[in-house]
Nucleic acid binder design. Structure first.
Lengths: 241, 241
DNA sequence: AATCGACAAACTGCATGCAGGAAAATTCGC
DNA sequence: GCGAATTTTCCTGCATGCAGTTTGTCGATT
């Protein structure tokens, strides 16, 4: 996901954007979804910011229709919130919401990693090991964003391995979790440096090895850790508001 | 959900349909979603049937845009499947898919009922008890469809009570489960008459009473039952194909 | 008569225009 | 000069038109 063009490709001219889409075989709506998701997670679109179809459409250089579809999906995923007639906004960051996200993740994540461990193909196992290795390399990198993007691919890989498309609703939960983590990155470093990445590495390896029970235990422990972190930073989140 | 008009309201004329929408305060896309979901669950749209934007738009008397949005949501939910460039079809019914659906339900459902039991308001408790009573009344009714529609409201109520919108991805799983059940209704009667309804009643009452652990146990037992049923009818599902 | 190729119908993806309604800016009254 | 009403602007929801592609059909050729 090379994120298209950081500069403003304002041209809705078909010539200008067709070179991007046919090769990928991806619809403009899918592109818009991933693009806006990324903007939200990286907080280029700040929490609470207004999001309009027209604005996004101009920003990424496509028409309103695919943008509209992407925005509605994002709203359905809870990444954007839509007040009845007042347009859409980026979901605010707060502890209560994050705890709900983690509650839903806890419901899904154990099943996800267990089934992935059970059903992954040899090729998927290899890619999981690669992913774990990549995490290891990023473990102490200064910029967190590459690890974030890598994390997204990790989840996609787990979903492929689990061979159950009905678990895919966990994807937006990860997006919200990544944003929460990024928003408190400075604190995170002091809270427990590298712990999250370590969990990713160990889960990836356990799944690759087919260790179902171990992967499940790790996922549980991971969520315990993430929840503790949320409560930790959430305290002065509430205090500062 | 009075399902609008069973006859064909072919008129895209605003006058003809505005009486339906403004009172509900619901968008045409939402209406189309529920309408098509119902068509699929009741198998008025048969498994494997082709679904086109234009066809549905004519059928329910709105333009293509809201229909398109609804169809894309339904595809995202796995109720419709979209072959790359060949349009959308209603998902086929098969045992393997149903087991995946139940796997995902198992992940979510325990959390759903436990949290609903924990967080339901007194008003929600009252409505849950009403729902259970209604199920009791329908227990031995000949026509299964009313119970099916009631079931949908039951889930909505559980979701409200659980106070966690991120668990809402269970809704389409129920839709697929209801269709599976309906498709095998004749066999169901012999398999274990009324058992499903009994579970609904008991779960509703446990949640209303705030019995978190009991509700969770019931949900687990319910899924065991439903899965056994799926495997039972799935055997000759495979044999007949 | 069967197969292959060309034509035609249909459908999706996308852009755009229009109407209704809310929010914001401006102007008018005090 | 400040508050309130009005106008302006923006935004969403929906319909519709257009282009590219695919599917199904009919006719021509072997």
């Amino acid at each position: 996901m090379p994120l298209a063009d950081p500069a403003a490709p304002e041209t809705p001219d078909p010539e200008a954007l067709t070179p991007g889409t046919p090769p990928t075989g991806e619809s403009l709506a899918d592109l818009a979804y991933r693009r806006v998701e990324d903007l939200v997670v990286t907080m280029e679109l700040a929490p609470g910011a207004r999001v309009s179809e027209h604005g996004i459409a101009e920003r990424i250089g496509v028409g309103r229709t695919p943008v509209r579809e992407a925005l509605q999906r994002l709203a359905g995923d809870g990444i954007l919130v839509t007040r009845p007639r007042r347009g859409m906004r980026v979901r605010e960051i707060d502890l209560a919401t994050q705890l709900r996200v983690l509650e839903a993740r806890r419901a899904l994540e154990g099943t996800l990693v267990r089934r992935a461990a059970l059903r992954r193909s040899p090729e998927q196992a290899a890619r999981l090991r690669e992913t774990a290795a990549a995490f290891r390399r990023m473990r102490d990198a200064p910029d967190p964003v590459p690890a974030l993007r890598h994390d997204r691919r990790f989840v996609d890989l787990l979903l492929d391995s689990a061979d159950n498309p009905f678990l895919a609703s966990i994807i937006p939960l990860y997006a919200l979790s990544r944003r929460f983590w990024l928003a408190h990155y400075a604190r995170q470093v002091r809270f427990e440096p590298g712990a999250i990445t370590d969990f990713h590495i160990r889960i990836g390896e356990a799944v690759a090895a087919g260790e179902e029970a171990e992967a499940g235990r790790l996922a549980d422990a991971f969520l315990d850790h993430v929840e503790a972190f949320a409560r930790f930073v959430g305290l002065d989140l509430a205090a500062s508001s």
